[in-house]
Amino acid sequence: MAKGQVKVEVYSERLRLRWSYRSQRYCLSVGLPDSIINRRVATQKAQQIELDMLSGNFDPTLQKYKPEDPLPMVVAGSETSQLHSTLGYLSPVQFEYNYWLSLEGVKAA
């Protein structure tokens, strides 16, 4: 790993970031399972950390980079799911979850 480079890796089927900065090793769980969309999210987080290291704005407590609180599970037919449907917004995690749910109904011919 090159100096100042944040590496995205899979550990226990979950994404995490690993890097060194000023002789200190860091590891941060992204809080997402391994998938194409989630790797993009992790890569963006890695780029943010790399830029902060280069610009001198790195947060050694990692609070700045930790994932936000997880989204609550949305149950079909609940007021929350109706609100999400009305707003038409899906986070990348919700989008991927809905995609995989849609495939469950598809059966091989």
Rank of each mutant, 00 (worst) to 15 (best):
M1A: 05
A2Y: 07
K3F: 12
Q5R: 08
V6E: 00
K7W: 14
V8M: 11
V8L: 11
V8F: 08
E9I: 12
V10D: 04
Y11G: 01
Y11K: 01
S12T: 09
S12Y: 13
L17C: 00
L17E: 00
R18I: 01
W19S: 04
Y21W: 14
Y21K: 11
R22V: 13
S23D: 15
Q24I: 06
R25L: 02
Y26Q: 00
C27K: 15
C27A: 05
C27N: 11
S29D: 09
S29I: 13
V30C: 03
G31N: 00
L32G: 04
P33A: 06
P33V: 07
P33S: 00
P33D: 01
D34P: 08
N38A: 01
R39D: 12
R40P: 06
A42D: 04
A42L: 06
A42F: 09
A42S: 01
T43H: 15
T43Y: 15
Q48Y: 11
E50N: 12
E50A: 09
E50Y: 12
S55K: 14
N57K: 15
F58Q: 06
D59H: 03
D59R: 03
T61K: 04
Q63A: 15
Q63T: 10
K64H: 12
P67F: 01
P67N: 03
P70A: 01
L71T: 04
P72E: 06
V74G: 04
V74H: 03
A76W: 11
A76C: 08
G77E: 03
S78H: 02
S78M: 01
S78T: 02
T80H: 07
S81L: 00
S81I: 00
Q82S: 10
Q82M: 05
L83E: 04
H84A: 11
H84L: 05
T86Y: 04
T86D: 03
L87H: 08
L87Y: 08
G88E: 06
G88R: 09
Y89S: 09
Y89R: 08
L90A: 02
L90K: 03
S91G: 08
S91T: 07
Q94T: 06
F95S: 13
E96F: 06
E96V: 10
Y97R: 13
Y99S: 11
W100F: 02
S102R: 13
G105K: 15
V106S: 14
A108P: 05
